[in-house]
Structure formats: structure tokens, C-alpha cells
Design a protein around this nucleic acid. Structure first.
Lengths: 231, 231
DNA sequence: CTAATAGTGTCTTTCAGACATTATCCT
DNA sequence: AGGATAATGTCTGAAAGACACTATTAG
């Protein structure tokens, strides 16, 4: 809806549409991270027990992404995540406090940027390994779908890896995100043109040192990458 | 947000969160169709001139998809479209009547199911060829993205073609949706295993009659299809 | 017959996938 | 040297893309 004349404010009965009761609008955020080679989602304990995604009500004039950021900083001390809208959950009875719509958001952060005492729930594939309150489990699955779609298009767009990384580290990350093993050489050929050598070498333990690469912000993965990854 | 204790209804100042002013929530719908080999979007004229997507305010207890359907039946006499959430447009100043969030939806219908006097705006690629009110042009582009993503996964999931169709008709449809020409033989090989022969033949004018196929609801296109189509 | 369109066979190139080989570190 | 891991080269099979060829209709 854009701007409109007064007439558009009234329905067929002449009732002003803004006189109808309005819903409360909330945001919930599924913060995904990688720990010990598995995807995890950040949750918060609920007062009466049980687990839920961090969330908040939208305040007057606030944007959804700002409410999501505020929810994360208030409930988990996090800043600097980038949020992606997933879907609006709108079942009228989803919240017994009344009519509350919730915009689900996905965000992704490396484990180090989460508080060390953050409560994490492991994911098996795209589903949480523990029950979450209400429709939050669906939100988590949607967040994984979104994460995979973004990682199929670009190389580590959410900076889960540090600035420089080896191809092996990148492949392990992708195996975690897509929950499948990826062939070493095909994967290298897939990504090699979308990353940039730093010239430096990794000084990990034994064996030949691996070359360190950095992301190349602009470059997209080839269009057929989705096939390789999601096959 | 799920159910919560009373404490979660109050913010740090003890103010009840439901006492905050709430936004109006609207839905807008980008109905896409194919006419003369081009994508078009259904628009409605605005009282003071200009074009906009059909939309409506959300009524108490109503679901977003129901509001979208109501908007379409009221403003364009349409029923039976399936709606897909695209994104919530939430700029606080996007509507000068006040604080109005709008959930953009995409829908797709064959031209025959639209009123013959429906106002259609042609698309050039993913952008409308005429200016639309406010953020509605962005909504249209998102609708095209969504349409392409769905058509890359399944064969004509929105039933733009009739129950039975030839491979040529299907290819012309895909060329329209993806706005690029597709090789005749590669396209046939891509889709042939995801459609079902009816045994009947098309009796179009000259030349060898083409076999008629039908959709096979369950079957997905191969994962690499996105590469072929969006290359 | 010719014109027109549908459908298939074939060749080349590309690339995934598997495997082997070489390269470069460590102890 | 020997072990370990990185990186690359090679082969095969599958599939895209281009092209030509065959098949089947109308007139």
C-alpha cells in the first residue's frame, strides 16, 4: 500500500480501517553458528522453562531489522550481525497473549563472537535437536534454508571464517552448512576462482602448509554451484 | 515470540509493551501473468492517478494470505491464486498516512483467469516498464525473483499452462519467465523426465504434431537446472 | 512433391568425480 | 628418510550446446 486518499481509509461499510484493532508485531531471530563442525542455533531460556529464540516487540517507528538487533543486544549481548527476513508467522492463535505477528529473521555469527556462556542447540540437518517453543522450530529450519541459499551463491557471505583461511577450512565449513561431504578436488575447482590468494601460508601442524586465501567480496560462485552443494 | 509470562509484557521501564502504539499491517500483491510472451503484473489505478499493486489492510484475526486473497477478490475479482510471502516492507515513512507495514506477496495466474479488462503493466526483465507507487516496484522485482526460483525447481508450479501442453509451449513459457532464449534440445532433455506423456497429440497447424504432456506434481527438476536457466 | 514443425542422434566441450602423482612441510 | 598434508595432473563419464538428420503432418 502506498499513500492514498482518505477514501482508501474506509472499507465498504464506511468504517475507518485504522479503527480496526491492530496486531502486535514482534521479531524473532535465529542466530546460527558453527561449533565443533555442526550448525547450532542460539536460544534463550524461558521463565517457566523451555527454550525459545530471542525476540522482541517492535517499537513505534522502529524498523524490523533494528528491533532484531535490539533483541539480540538486550537478550544476548550481541552486536553487528546482519539480519535476513525469513517469513512472517501469522497464525492468529500462535501467541496466547493476543494477536501477535512475528517476523522471523536469520543471522549468522562465528562462535567467537557469541558470549562464551551462550546457550546453543545443535541442529541435525535443518531441524533443531531439542524442542523449541511454538513455531520457533520452523523459523530455525527456514534460517538454514536461507543460509544455504546464500552460501550457494557466494563464498562465506556471513564471514563465519576469519579474514584468511585455507581451502580445507572453507570446505569443512561448507560441509557443515550443507550437511554433506564434499569432494576435495571438485570443491577446490568450484571456489578457486572466487577467492584470492594472500601469498601467506598456513602454519598448521604437520604436512605441507596450505595457502591462505581471502574472500573476494564481489565474486559470485558459478550458477551450477547449487547442484554441487545441494545434490 | 511464543507464549510468555506477564513479565515479558513489560520493558525495562515497566511499561507494558502492548501499550506502545502498534503499526497498521497491510498486504500488497504482485500478480504476475504472461501475455504475448512477456511477463506482466496486475495493477490498479489510484484515485489521484498513478498505478499501484492491489492491497488491503489486515483485519483482526485474519491471516496474511487471507487478506491478500480478499484484496484480490475485492479489487480485481480474482479467486484461487496461491500466494507467496516475499518480504515485509517496513520503512517507517513509506506511507504518509502513518505507520504502515506491508507484507508483499507474489501470485501467479494465467491470463485467462484475469478479467479481460484487467490493467497490466509489462515487465522488462524483472522491472516494471511503468513507474509504480512507492516501494511497489521493488515488490514486483521480488515477485519475479520468487517466480524464477520456483520455476527452476519444478515444472510450471503455478499452472500457467493448461493441463496438457507441448514441450515447445513449456519452453516458450520458461523463456518468458527467465527472459532468455533456451536451447531447444537441452531444454527438452532437462524437463523430459519431470513431465508425463498423455498419449495425445497437439493438433496445431502445420508440421509434425507435437506430443502433449502433463505436469507430474511431485517430480523436481534436477538440481543443476538453475545453472541452465539463470546462467 | 514441398513446407513446416517435432523429435532424435551425434559430436565437441566442459566439468564433476575419482584417483594418482607431485610438492612441501614436520619430526 | 619417512610421515603427513596440500596442490595438481589425468582419466572417465555425464551432460550442455550446437548441429544435422529423421519423422510426420498439411497443403
Amino acid at each position: 500500500m502506498g499513500r492514498a486518499t482518505e477514501s482508501e481509509w474506509r472499507d465498504a461499510d464506511g468504517k475507518a480501517l485504522t479503527d480496526y484493532p491492530r496486531p502486535s508485531v514482534a521479531v524473532d531471530v535465529a542466530v546460527l553458528t558453527v561449533q565443533t563442525g555442526r550448525l547450532h542455533v542460539l536460544v534463550v531460556g524461558r521463565p517457566r522453562g523451555g527454550l525459545a529464540l530471542p525476540g522482541s516487540f517492535l517499537r513505534p517507528g522502529e524498523r524490523l531489522a533494528d528491533a532484531a538487533e535490539r533483541a539480540l543486544s538486550t537478550k544476548a549481548g550481541l552486536v553487528g550481525a546482519d539480519f535476513h527476513q525469513l517469513a512472517m508467522f501469522d497464525a492468529p492463535d500462535r501467541d496466547d497473549r493476543g494477536w501477535v505477528l512475528s517476523m522471523a529473521h536469520g543471522a549468522t555469527l562465528p562462535r567467537e563472537q557469541l558470549p562464551s556462556d551462550a546457550e546453543l542447540v545443535r541442529l541435525d540437518g535443518r531441524v533443531a535437536s531439542e524442542p523449541l517453543a511454538f513455531d520457533h522450530a520452523d523459523m530455525v529450519s527456514r534460517a538454514v534454508d536461507d543460509l544455504r541459499a546464500r552460501y550457494a551463491r557466494r563464498v562465506d557471505p556471513s564471514d563465519l571464517l576469519p579474514d584468511s583461511f585455507t581451502v580445507l577450512e572453507l570446505r569443512r565449513l561448507y560441509e557443515t552448512v550443507f550437511d554433506r561431504s564434499l569432494p576435495k578436488d571438485s570443491f577446490r575447482r568450484l571456489v578457486i576462482d572466487a577467492i584470492e590468494p594472500t601469498g601467506r601460508m598456513s602454519s598448521s601442524g604437520a604436512g605441507r602448509p596450505a595457502e591462505l586465501f581471502r574472500r573476494r567480496g564481489d565474486d559470485e560462485l558459478p550458477a551450477g554451484a547449487a547442484g554441487l552443494l545441494t545434490d
